[in-house]
Design a protein around this nucleic acid. Structure first.
Lengths: 240, 240
DNA sequence: ACGTATTTGTTCGTATGTATC
DNA sequence: GGATACATACGAACAAATACG
């Protein structure tokens, strides 16, 4: 006796913990609760949600596992900085990830970031585009001083992301980058790649500066295709 | 009375739940439990671990919420395929925000779906591409019979999504579609739009069939830009 | 087609350890 | 030291969904 009506939305039964988890994620991702903020006490929060403490705790533990929350006994539960999201259990996920799965992640990142570059060229304010330039300069300085370019690399992509002005896409990129962080680190350890990255970044910046979305997308695509090659190479190196 | 000695590592006080899901993760990654396998029942497992059921449940639930396990009442708990786990972070980024601009959602959808169309043209199997064609035919039938094209429309986009073969992007798109579900319904209520949609779908299918990613992306882009216009128009109509 | 056993979902009460003031 | 606020942990009980004979 299925299919009584075709278009009834399939009410998927979801557990209380799942519902609570979704609420928690929403509050953290959309910035209602910012990094370092302290959440209401478990006893208060479960009252607000209208569920028992046990159920809420299951959701909180999951948030802790993915690195979004941090609980300390006798103290409280706090929101972690975004850079820590997904950073904990991912070591295993990455080293064990097989080639097709890694490819899926990078493909997704390529598509999102290509889109962001286009949007940045279209809608970015001059100030936001200057900010991109600053990160390019900063990376140049890092290379000159022979320092790690990890932070500068991240800063560049975040600056482009900001200029695009779409928080949904920015958030998703941040998640994907966190997911791949270890691979990116390996990539940056490869000798002689930093100048190449810098050149790519510069090209992307210039296309955005010229307000040329197609060129910006193309430059970003080129940069990330290079990255994909480097990351998979770096991981192979690292595994042996 | 802190800092008695600088170099002693503060002993990480780890909770039972944390310890439990370290065990769980270990069993999953080293292949003791493979994707699709069923775990021992909660009551057995907590005895094996020597902890209370509530503590074990916090770990199990956390694993479930991040997409590593899947529990069904009356049945058991099963190991998920890893793509499930890898999809989650990107989906979390697309959770409801208090001030989610419909425009941002549609922009994100445009970018993802454009990418999916390109991937489908590149990597889709012939069978998958045939499946796209079937949905186009089905929509034609619906229009001929003057029925709602809502399901056929959804089926088309799902089929393209399948052909692209990237679960991360597919799942994320699903999330975005849920966010703007209301808008889509409005669109389809507008008189006379169905034939236009059908034409768009056909063009997209043909480009994919010809294995032309650039054309497929362009056609999808055109289709979704039309949709964006229609949706915002429909919403304006609906509001007055 | 119908029970019954199995399994997860959910709640409550209670006790304990820890941090802060 | 004492008071307070908080997370951690346990066990018991019942509800609800599913599988299986």
């Amino acid at each position: 006796m299925k299919h009584i009506a075709k278009s009834v939305k399939p009410i998927q039964r979801t557990t209380l913990a799942t519902a609570a988890f979704e609420q928690l994620i929403a509050n953290v991702v959309n910035g209602t609760w910012k990094a370092g903020d302290r959440l209401p006490a478990e006893r208060d929060l479960c009252q607000q949600f209208g569920i028992a403490r046990t159920s809420l705790r299951e959701a909180m533990k999951a948030m802790e596992l993915v690195g979004m929350l941090n609980s300390r006994v006798g103290d409280g539960t706090f929101v972690c900085p975004r850079s820590e999201f997904l950073s904990r259990p991912m070591m295993w996920a990455f080293t064990e990830m097989d080639k097709t799965e890694l490819n899926d992640v990078m493909q997704a990142r390529l598509i999102i970031e290509e889109g962001l570059a286009g949007l940045a060229a279209e809608h970015g304010t001059n100030a936001q585009i200057d900010a991109i330039n600053k990160t390019v300069q900063a990376m140049g300085d890092c290379i000159a001083r022979n320092e790690s370019v990890l932070d500068a690399d991240m800063a560049f992509h975040m600056a482009v992301s900001d200029a695009a002005g779409n928080p949904l896409l920015s958030n998703s990129l941040q998640m994907l980058r966190n997911l791949m962080r270890h691979g990116i680190q390996f990539k940056l350890l490869l000798p002689g790649v930093s100048p190449t990255i810098l050149k790519d970044h510069l090209a992307i910046y210039q296309a955005i500066k010229k307000r040329n979305p197609a060129a910006a997308k193309k430059a970003m695509r080129h940069h990330l295709l290079e990255t994909m090659k480097l990351v998979s190479f770096a991981i192979k190196q690292h595994q042996r």
